[in-house]
Amino acid sequence: MKKLFILIALVFLITSTILAQESGNHQHSEHLETLLTEYLEIKRALVNDNFEGAKSALQSFSQEITTNNEMKHHPEHSLMHETHHSTMITAVESASNAENIDQLRNSFDEISAELIKAVKNQNIKTNLHVQFCPMADNGDGARWLSENEEIKNPYYGSMMSTCGSLQEQI
């Protein structure tokens, strides 16, 4: 009986170690870091009502989304990545076609939702804050990521720069 218990414990330990290694290898840190840098540039430009600045940062964000192949290195999660990735590409394409800042802001909420999912799925410890504006998205509300606790609303810019609340830190 003692040998059986030791054998079961050994199998559990080995399985746990393998799963932990796979989980650790599953992160896409560089890709996500690049996306976050560009995303925060888009957000800052929208907060400052800078349509051209937001479009410029969006172009860099879009390039990272469409050219980085890091997601293809995990066939065991390919369906999950493909679904998430295609949703992000659709949101980025919509934002890229924006002809004015309001259209870009409407697409920014979709980009934000997908990026928040990505950050949470990767279990990467950040100092980012998820913030929420209840009035955005035609009253349905929308979230965004911020480096600071202070609310600077990208959906309304200078018109209502402090509208929103802090939901969580990730």
Results as ranks from 00 to 15, higher is better:
23 S>K: 09
16 S>R: 00
92 V>G: 02
17 T>L: 11
28 H>Q: 11
46 L>K: 10
30 E>Q: 13
115 L>K: 03
96 S>W: 01
103 Q>N: 13
91 A>Q: 00
81 H>S: 12
82 E>V: 06
108 F>S: 11
59 Q>K: 14
34 T>F: 02
106 N>R: 13
77 H>T: 12
127 N>P: 04
79 L>K: 14
102 D>K: 15
87 T>E: 12
49 D>H: 03
115 L>T: 02
99 E>F: 00
66 T>D: 04
118 A>T: 09
52 E>A: 12
92 V>K: 01
125 K>H: 13
45 A>N: 07
82 E>T: 15
87 T>F: 11
23 S>D: 02
43 K>R: 15
47 V>G: 08
123 N>V: 03
32 L>Y: 12
107 S>F: 05
35 L>E: 06
81 H>N: 13
20 A>L: 09
85 H>M: 11
95 A>R: 01
128 L>N: 06
57 A>Q: 00
93 E>P: 00
85 H>C: 07
44 R>S: 15
17 T>S: 08
52 E>P: 01
60 S>Y: 05
98 A>L: 08
20 A>N: 09
70 E>N: 01
67 T>Q: 09
87 T>P: 00
94 S>Y: 06
81 H>A: 10
110 E>N: 14
101 I>N: 12
16 S>A: 14
75 P>N: 09
41 E>P: 00
73 H>A: 13
29 S>F: 08
101 I>V: 15
91 A>C: 02
115 L>E: 04
37 T>A: 04
22 E>I: 04
23 S>C: 00
78 S>R: 10
66 T>K: 09
91 A>H: 02
97 N>P: 02
87 T>M: 13
75 P>K: 07
40 L>W: 10
55 K>N: 08
100 N>H: 09
82 E>W: 15
46 L>H: 12
121 N>L: 12
48 N>F: 09
113 A>P: 00
89 I>S: 05
109 D>T: 15
119 V>L: 11
126 T>S: 14
116 I>P: 08
49 D>P: 10
59 Q>T: 14
112 S>G: 12
47 V>R: 07
17 T>Q: 01
51 F>T: 03
109 D>F: 15
93 E>R: 05
98 A>H: 02
29 S>V: 14
72 K>I: 11
81 H>V: 04
81 H>K: 07
22 E>A: 03
26 H>P: 00
116 I>M: 11
37 T>E: 02
83 T>H: 14
106 N>M: 12
126 T>W: 05
55 K>Q: 15
31 H>A: 10
106 N>G: 11
18 I>E: 03
16 S>E: 00
123 N>L: 07
51 F>P: 05
106 N>T: 12
62 S>W: 02
61 F>L: 08
75 P>D: 12
60 S>W: 00
46 L>W: 10
86 S>P: 04
28 H>G: 05
117 K>Y: 14
97 N>C: 04
77 H>E: 14
72 K>W: 11
32 L>I: 14
59 Q>R: 13
